[in-house]
Design a binder for these strands. Sequence first.
DNA 1: CTGTCTATCGTTAGCCG
DNA 2: ACGGCTAACGATAGACA
Lengths: 190, 190
Amino acid sequence: MASIEETKPHNKRTSQGRRKIDIKKLEKKSNKQVTFSKRRSGLFKKAAELGILCGAEVAVIVFSPNNKLFSFGNVDDVAGSYLNNGAVVPSSSSTSTLVKGMIELEEAEEKKRQLERQATLASILENNNINSWWEKPVEEMGYEECDNHLATLINIRNKFSDASSSSTDFDVPKTKTMPFCGDWSLGLNF
Amino acid sequence: MASIEETKPHNKRTSQGRRKIDIKKLEKKSNKQVTFSKRRSGLFKKAAELGILCGAEVAVIVFSPNNKLFSFGNVDDVAGSYLNNGAVVPSSSSTSTLVKGMIELEEAEEKKRQLERQATLASILENNNINSWWEKPVEEMGYEECDNHLATLINIRNKFSDASSSSTDFDVPKTKTMPFCGDWSLGLNF
DNA sequence: CTGTCTATCGTTAGCCG
DNA sequence: ACGGCTAACGATAGACA
């Protein structure tokens, strides 16, 4: 008799579901992008959960492979407070050395990307005068409409910064803000 | 016949393993601490994986419930690069060198502008005394000793800052640095 | 690129040593 | 507090829409 698979050949799943992968640089560009999205979401979700569960302050900063900036958390609280309280002082010494080393590395590409990141951050900071790159305290995001569950989240104000720019120029990315992303409280989906 | 449970009553697992919890502030203080540790590790691991898989720059900053500071990632690249390189104004010499390298990339113009912008920002930052919370450039961490596996990680330079402070005051936590944490490359265990 | 689905893989809550 | 254990739970690779 016909086996199930033979009965419905078009129905056989080509995907066995998740497969194990080893943690190494993804080569397939398309895959990389998808994975980045998914995992970034996951990371932010984890960050949120940690913050809620433990009452911790959490901030996450991520540059995508394409140098897009994503961030989670009340960075101004977490990082800002630290900074304002007097961080370790700057030493201007390492600069030339660093640059030198970089050049010797002949990894211009990588360097370029770094510069882009720097530029991004710089621009953001410039625009916001060192204050929240997520633009505002969450209060303005209209949480009030949120139910009890969301209330918890206010504690963990979260926001996205998406700095886009023309791929060549990369000038000053205007910090686009995503007010909120759906069913936060329950699903913690981003 | 005696059921298995009855046969070995002392062996019956009191724990059904993981149980579902809802994401809300943990009340039990002991639990909270344990959960924080576990989940912080998990978060950092995720962050590392994201960075490796996708070639993304990731930085995470966490204040524990007790206001201890933990951080993951090449914060100096992600956020601090502009501090260490840009903030500390690149001297014209190193700048030109850098730019030179960039020219080979055919994007010198943009880069130069960026550097200039950074320089501008630098002064601003200097005035505001906003500098690296991450204390130093990673160079001091002795990555070079890392083997191939770790090589991947170099890209993702990682650092821990552990700053403790009186729970009430929260003043300026002194950034204690943990150079590296064990079997990073394979297990990604923290 | 964002979402859905599924089988699987990886994380972790609760316990105990 | 740390580490180990185990079963459940939650995240996600891959394929598709």
